[in-house]
């Protein structure tokens, strides 16, 4: 149990998927203009990554048994694409406002490297089932934390008098960089 908690905290804070592994930057910068939309995006990513980690674990067992583990990437992409499609149709039906707000970034979770990154990391670290799921959830939760914080900062920054050369994307990049530096403080977390 203790080990699982360590995996989760490591994945979420110490090696935050966005801020120290630089995965999933696209949607991190793209959908972080409003906090509520960012929460929706984070929620979708949490669901997709957690389920994808679980499914990927069993699929990897199958691939391993047949000695064709080199197919892991392509099979994982299949699973992720299908999961994203399910999430998308779910949102379209039950949360149309969120579906509209997320726009193109929702189907883009398919190609979000964070999702595939977690699945492949799990395999590399030879995690067992629960470790995989917890690592997936922790990573996705780290993404959720990062994107919500960035959205919060951007909302406050919207009314600030940003110097003209830094308006738009540059100030967001700088904000993200400062956040990344702050997150590096977690590296000294004694666990």
């Amino acid at each position: 149990m203790g080990e699982l908690i360590i995996i989760a905290i490591t994945a979420a804070l110490l090696s935050n998927v966005v801020l120290s592994q630089f995965l999933g930057i696209c949607s991190f910068l793209g959908v972080s203009t409003k906090t509520d939309v960012a929460v929706g995006m984070g929620g979708a990513v949490v669901f997709v990554i957690t389920v994808a980690s679980a499914v990927a674990y069993f699929l990897y067992l199958l691939l391993d048994a047949l000695g064709i583990t080199y197919l892991d990437t392509i099979v994982f992409i299949l699973v992720i694409a299908a999961l994203v499609q399910i999430v998308e149709s779910f949102f379209k039906k039950y949360v149309p406002s969120l579906y509209k707000a997320l726009g193109v970034y929702l189907p883009l979770i398919t190609t979000n490297c964070a999702v595939l990154g977690v699945a492949l990391t799990n395999v590399q670290n030879k995690y067992n089932f629960w470790q995989s799921v917890v690592c997936g959830f922790g990573t996705a939760f780290g993404y959720l934390i990062a994107i919500v914080i960035l959205a919060g900062i951007r909302e406050r920054n919207a009314n600030n008098d940003v110097p003209t050369p830094f308006k738009g994307s540059p100030i967001v990049m700088i904000t993200a960089a400062l956040m990344a530096m702050a997150f590096f403080g977690f590296a000294n977390l004694a666990i």
Binding site: L62, L63, L66, I68, L71, V75, A82, I86, S89, F90
Partner: peptide
């Protein structure tokens, strides 16, 4: 085996999507 696994996974996921597509049809 490679063909069977990738094809099989694709088939299962495709069926799953077909079902959820009906459930969540807008």
């Amino acid at each position: 085996w490679a063909t069977v696994v990738v094809g099989g996974v694709g088939l299962v996921l495709g069926l799953l999507l077909g079902v959820t597509g009906h459930i969540f049809a807008v």
